[in-house]
Design a protein around this nucleic acid. Structure first.
Lengths: 186, 186
DNA sequence: CATAAGATACCGTCTAGACGGTTTGTCAAG
DNA sequence: CTTGACAAACCGTCTAGACGGTATCTTATG
């Protein structure tokens, strides 16, 4: 009968907190820092509590994946709705997401996802599926070499953001985006 | 008095074998599969033997990093020697490396490196340094928006190769390269 | 509307095994 | 006969997860 037992129950909030903490830990301590102990402790929950929400570690990572791809999908869908030109519409929406990433709060989440993605073969497969699904869905409008190239460049920029390997000033960034949008139209 | 004691000693070969195995394991089992036990066993060496060559795990990863960036540097240098045009010379050499990657044996090594890179904050820092050094060295010839973009696109393609997320046919691949080379000249 | 009967959301403890690293010993080559 | 190149056993720590319990929430019923 500890104090923790007596606090108000707010399962959805705790769940969200756990995902958020998992994301934060991975970029502070690396992927190996994402342990059940560390996550649960940092989220102010017991390990048992964590395992109640996510029955095993993979489920935690899966949860993160779902959460983030869900948000990504919604953002892309919204971005596409505001684009009158059909050709390259998906690519431009994708570009918008990547370029918006740097000052959004979700960046952290994406960082851990990328790391986990590369580390865990199982998640790599899920990502493969995500890409294949979208490539399939927009094969009519977004499969030109220009579109492919634009998306690859966006991925490269995104990777650079994550690794903080290059620092690109805002002006150059804008110039790149303009050029990539042009590519998506060709 | 095991067999291993009686075989001819060839430290350099064993060292190379250990690096190679570490690379292979990571893409078969993920980054978490790269354990001292697994690596040493798969390389046919005892753990003590592994730790003789690399005093700790970080040293093993560092060794991989040195090995691979060393090869990359040499390939880039050679590629640059055969390029008469100054502007974007480094970028084109970089492109050549990435596009050559897919059918080379070193691909595996690069895969583990990328994974380790993202996982280990310490290696992230080393990569940051590598990029900064090269960006600095070729600031006169390779810092145009076109060059930047071309390199980012190459990184994206490289990531896709690693994740096997997109499969790009050889023809499209060639078309992309042509376009990226053109970008490097602008 | 009160309340009993679950269902849900946790907590705290425990354990088997993995993992990085140490130590001590052995063999072979120069 | 010294030294480099390993082997083999061992150790402390960390980690994922199981488990049994307790407190809060919800819902159906009288």
């Amino acid at each position: 009968m500890s104090i923790a037992h007596h606090r108000r129950k707010q399962p959805e909030l705790v769940r969200q907190q756990l995902l958020e903490v998992a994301a934060r830990l991975s970029l502070e301590l690396g992927a190996s820092g994402v342990t059940l102990d560390a996550v649960s402790q940092a989220a102010g929950v017991s390990k048992g509590g964590l395992l109640h929400h996510f029955p095993n570690k993979m489920a935690l990572l899966d949860g993160l994946f779902d959460d983030l791809t869900g948000k990504l999908d919604r953002t892309i869908a919204e971005e596409m709705r505001n684009d009158p030109v059909a050709h390259g519409r998906f690519t431009r929406a994708y570009l918008a997401c990547v370029f918006a990433l740097q000052d959004e709060t979700d960046t952290q989440g994406w960082q851990v996802l990328t790391i986990a993605l590369l580390s865990e073969p199982q998640l790599r497969a899920r990502w493969r599926l995500w890409v294949a699904d979208h490539a399939d869905e927009f094969v009519g409008t977004d499969s030109s070499v220009g579109c492919l190239l634009a998306r690859f460049a966006a991925d490269g920029l995104w990777l650079a953001d994550i690794l903080k390997s290059h620092d690109v000033d805002q002006q150059t960034r804008q110039a790149m985006r303009t050029q990539l949008v042009a590519l998506s139209l060709q």
